[in-house]
């Protein structure tokens, strides 16, 4: 029973990592850029939801503010691409990485200046409730997180694999010039994917804030999401979710069975090991290099 509890809380954590990672893997799939500010997007989405929901602030009904926050973050992501990232079109990957790190710094500062540096938590209808499932008693927030994540990953997978827009996004990533020749509006596709990624990060933020408290430095969680993405192979959506779950499951077990100082290094050790021995991740997309 004890182990099961660890598994469930690990899964719920892993889902949040997976969702953050999902956000930047989507951007990577479609634009070949890596958004190092994804963790900060998540943090910002969470704070917007808290600001809309909590009775100390605006105090809207929960579901209304969730929808509003997702929309706001979608527009935010789209505008981010439109105003800033688009100027970097065609520039090297590392330039975009540095740009997004800078954006992350600014977002963290803004969140701290607006909402303060004290941890806040979301007043969600799941908080403190329980779900009975057979003989099991589970936290409603954890069940919600797992369900939402599975649903979201599934639908995004279908979106990328089956729909016209999803395929256009993948094509735009593989070769921008060739995608232009095939009649794909590459820049508009980029704007849309950043918007979509903003929405996903808002959902991740809402789930994270519903489960525990959040403060402006929570964006650094993005680093753990990198581990998830790398394990999953950086280009595969289900792979990323599994990567997130692996990291999420490792943490509670490591802190349970390994000495205190050593447990928090477990996710990063896994990340390094995967990078060293299987640089393409467990679900490789990398193919043989042609010169």
């Amino acid at each position: 029973m004890d182990v099961l509890q660890l598994v469930i809380s690990g899964l719920a954590n892993g889902c949040v990592y997976g969702l953050i990672a999902l956000g930047f893997v989507m951007i990577y799939k479609a634009t070949e850029a890596v958004n190092f500010a994804q963790g900060d997007f998540m943090m910002f989405g969470a704070f917007i939801t808290i600001w809309l929901t909590n009775t100390d602030f605006v105090g809207l009904p929960f579901w209304l503010s969730v929808i509003l926050a997702i929309l706001i973050m979608g527009v935010f992501g789209y505008l981010m691409e439109r105003i800033i990232i688009r100027r970097m079109f065609g520039q090297s990957q590392i330039a975009v990485v540095i740009l997004t790190i800078a954006i992350g710094f600014i977002l963290r500062f803004l969140a701290g200046a607006i909402w303060g540096h004290d941890p806040l938590s979301l007043e969600s209808p799941f908080a403190g409730k329980e779900v009975r499932f057979g003989g099991l008693v589970l936290g409603a927030d954890e069940v919600a997180i797992i369900l939402v994540t599975l649903l979201l990953t599934g639908s995004l997978f279908v979106f990328f694999a089956k729909t016209k827009l999803g395929l256009a996004m993948q094509a735009a990533s593989q070769n921008q010039l060739a995608a232009y020749y095939m009649g794909i509006p590459v820049k508009r596709v980029h704007g849309l994917i950043w918007g979509l990624s903003g929405m996903v990060s808002a959902i991740a933020g809402i789930l994270f804030a519903a489960k525990g408290a959040i403060d402006p430095s929570a964006g650094l969680l993005g680093i753990k999401a990198f581990a998830a993405a790398v394990i999953g192979g950086f280009g595969s959506l289900p792979g990323v979710l599994i990567g997130g779950l692996i990291i999420g499951l490792t943490e509670p077990f490591a802190s349970r069975y390994i000495a205190a100082g050593y447990s928090q290094i477990a996710p990063y050790t896994i990340l390094l090991l995967v990078l060293v021995f299987r640089p393409a991740g467990l679900f490789a997309q990398m193919q043989k290099k042609k010169v």
């Binding site: 954006i103 710094f105 500062f109 701290g112 200046a113």
Partner: peptide
């Protein structure tokens, strides 16, 4: 002083340089 203003302004400087003077 707003806490963390250094990081914010530094981020802004980096942003402007990458965009306008790489």
């Amino acid at each position: 002083t707003i806490p963390g203003i250094e990081a914010g302004i530094f981020g802004l400087i980096v942003l402007l340089f990458i965009l306008f003077e790489p």
